[in-house]
């Protein structure tokens, strides 16, 4: 009896060790090479001026890029990481930090050197600025954030061309039912409190979300708490949903979005927040790489990249690599 049990336990132990050896030690990715096949673009090569130059002086520096845990964040993190790699840095990635609280703590503690954050989110989550008090002008809000971050020894890199703010969405059928309104004010008038809107659980209590609709547009739809967003629209769980401006699903021809004419939603541009120690590592060339690589990121482009992840189910690492190649930053 005992020999059989012992044999089994030994086998399990050996198995565990083997599996452990095989699966262990991949918490710090040393940066992938991006996708494998070259993307098919119409314009052939890249403009010479855009190609990222490898600087051997960077080889001795290790830069850790972090990100939060949803598609757009993964993509942005990968883009910055792969770009810095192309510039010769040794890059480590920590792309699953979680919510902004966790990510910001990691940044301040020095576990990461930088991560991309939304201006609106940073101001409310880290500096307790009320949503209503955030300047709606993109430059003003950025300057306010940059000033606050400086006190924490963090530098806010120039913000991206795209912003990813809330956008109320519905199906085409719902829009037709309401007479095809174009702005949120019109929607608020026509849709009563009988219609419903779905959003992530937190939305119910945020002034830049459901409460904002009530305060600014005088519209109190029924709230459905779920992560489904567009799935909710498709399944008829709700009439409207709080989508995000760069959501991949918006590029499908199925949904209608409405203009935020009263500027309820604050700006949500992305800024690559870098610790001062990280800024030193980057140097001038590193900073230029960051600024250059985010330049083509318009809302349309970001939506396309998001689509590749959320709709085509590609890996963010590959999508970022394809983007850098298609835009001519790497070969």
């Amino acid at each position: 009896m005992k020999t059989s049990i012992r044999a089994l336990l030994t086998l399990l132990a050996v198995l565990a060790l083997a599996v452990g050896a095989a699966a262990c030690g991949d918490d710090d990715d040393d940066g992938g090479a991006g996708g494998s096949e070259p993307a098919s673009t119409e314009s052939g090569g890249s403009e010479q001026g855009r190609l990222i130059q490898r600087d051997d002086a960077n080889a001795s520096k290790t830069f850790t890029v972090g990100s939060k845990n949803f598609a757009e964040q993964y993509i942005l993190g990968e883009i910055y990481a792969q770009a810095l790699e192309a510039a010769g840095f040794k890059v480590r990635k920590q792309l699953d930090l979680g919510s902004e609280q966790v990510a910001f703590k990691a940044l301040r503690d020095g576990r990461i050197d930088a991560y991309p954050e939304y201006t609106g989110t940073a101001l409310t989550s880290f500096y307790r600025v009320k949503t209503d008090d955030i300047p709606r002008d993109p430059q003003e809000s950025f300057d306010q954030l940059a000033a606050e971050l400086e006190k924490d020894n963090i530098t806010a890199m120039p913000q991206t061309p795209f912003q990813n703010t809330f956008v109320i969405t519905s199906t085409k059928e719902t829009a037709e039912k309401l007479g095809n309104p174009k702005t949120l004010s019109e929607v608020a008038e026509k849709a009563g409190s009988e219609m419903s809107i779905s959003g992530f659980p937190e939305c119910r209590q945020r002034t830049d979300c459901l409460l904002g609709l009530r305060d600014v547009y005088d519209w109190t739809p029924k709230f459905v708490s779920s992560q489904g967003k567009f799935a909710d629209l498709d399944e008829g769980q709700s009439d409207f949903t709080f989508g995000f401006g760069t959501d991949g699903e918006l590029s499908l021809d199925k949904y209608v979005t409405y203009e935020d004419d009263k500027q309820l939603f604050p700006p949500y541009f992305v800024t690559f927040m870098v610790r001062d120690s990280g800024v030193e590592k980057l140097g001038e060339s590193g900073r230029q790489v960051i600024e250059a690589v985010q330049e083509p990121l318009t809302e349309e482009v970001m939506q396309e990249l998001n689509s590749r992840v959320t709709i085509d189910k590609q890996e963010p690492e590959k999508v970022a690599g394809d983007y850098l190649r298609e835009a001519g930053f790497v070969k």
């Binding site: 993307a39 098919s40 673009t41 119409e42 314009s43 403009e47 855009r50 061309p161 799935a231 699903e249 590029s251 499908l252 021809d253 199925k254 330049e295 083509p296 318009t298 349309e300 482009v301 396309e304 689509s307 709709i311 085509d312 189910k313 983007y323 298609e326 835009a327 001519g328």
Partner: peptide
């Protein structure tokens, strides 16, 4: 902002059909 890079990033035309696109 230069118009160049926009032209090079393939914006695909998605209609949301197909098993994977519909999360099936």
């Amino acid at each position: 902002m230069s118009a160049g890079p926009l032209a090079q990033i393939q914006i695909r035309d998605r209609t949301g059909e197909g098993c994977v696109a519909e999360n099936g």
